[in-house]
């Protein structure tokens, strides 16, 4: 029998703490599958962030460091500068990456740090109870925008992929989604491209993955996926924004 889909070696046996239907679990699996397929498990150091994925070091079956809120790209920089031949990735949410860690992500990208960033965008702060994030959509209800995000008061969401794609030193920037199986598989391909860019020393790579927060969005898991497709994707278009040539085509 051939396993078509199962638990990759780069995931531990530990049961996820994530809420039912949260797509963190899928994105973890995709990262682990890519690391397995590239044969990198034993030469990878991952960096967990703060947010729901703060415990992701329990799930990735490889060397991990847990970083302070938003600082994962700086921590990853420290690791990669000492161990340039190892694969280094960060796994960050939208509050972590686009708000408190905006300086660290911008400058890691500007320096072209040869690391891979997995950026999970679910348009809210999940762990702390669904507060407004820098990626919260205009009008979106959150626990700190109880009447909906008012762009006059709270401004507009940050499109991080578009911002980072303008930088000279970024090698691979893509935004994908997890709202259905086809897009989950596209997400895996993007994550593969990002890790390959790092393997080939091309510089900074990031995949922004649109994800869900059924609990804080107060939706059933299937409805949450539909909300990603019908609302998030309008504001955050799916695209491969940047792919430096010279790599594996």
């Amino acid at each position: 029998m051939k396993v078509i889909s199962g638990k990759p070696e780069s995931l531990t046996d530990k049961k996820y703490h994530y809420c039912p239907g949260c797509m963190h679990g899928v994105i973890h699996r995709l990262v682990a599958e890519v690391i397995d397929e590239l044969g990198l498990r034993e030469e990878t150091v991952g960096v967990a962030s703060v947010g729901c994925s703060v415990l992701s070091h329990n799930y990735f079956n490889l060397d991990m460091q847990e970083a302070a809120h938003g600082r994962a790209p700086a921590v990853a920089t420290g690791i990669k500068r000492v161990l340039p031949d190892r694969t280094v990735f960060t796994y960050q949410g939208d509050g972590d990456l686009a708000s408190i860690g905006s300086a660290e992500i911008l400058h890691a990208a500007a320096r072209g740090e040869n690391i891979t960033v997995i950026f999970v965008n679910n348009s809210c702060y999940g762990m702390t109870g669904g507060q407004m994030a820098p990626t919260t959509l205009p009008g979106q209800l959150t626990s700190t925008t109880p009447l909906g995000r008012d762009v006059k008061k709270e401004g507009y969401p940050l499109r991080m992929s578009e911002v980072l794609a303008t930088m000279d030193a970024t090698a691979y920037i893509a935004r994908t989604s997890t709202h259905n199986a086809k897009h989950v598989m596209k997400t895996k391909k993007a994550i593969l491209n990002a890790f390959k860019a790092q393997q080939q020393g091309q510089g900074f790579s990031m995949v922004e993955v649109l994800s869900t927060c059924p609990t804080n969005w107060k939706m059933k898991p299937v409805e949450a996926l539909q909300w990603v497709e019908n609302n998030m994707m309008k504001y955050f278009p799916l695209q491969e924004f940047k792919k430096v040539s010279g790599g594996d085509q």
């Binding site: 150091v45 960096v47 460091q65 970083a67 302070a68 600082r71 700086a74 921590v75 990853a76 920089t77 420290g78 690791i79 990669k80 500068r81 000492v82 161990l83 300086a103 660290e104 911008l106 400058h107």
Partner: peptide
Amino acid sequence: GVFLQAESEVAAINMVYGAAGTGARV
């Protein structure tokens, strides 16, 4: 060796965290 001018003191100390975590003297 590596000298890196970070974007802030906050970033610098977190780079130290990452590097120290690899066992390097930093």
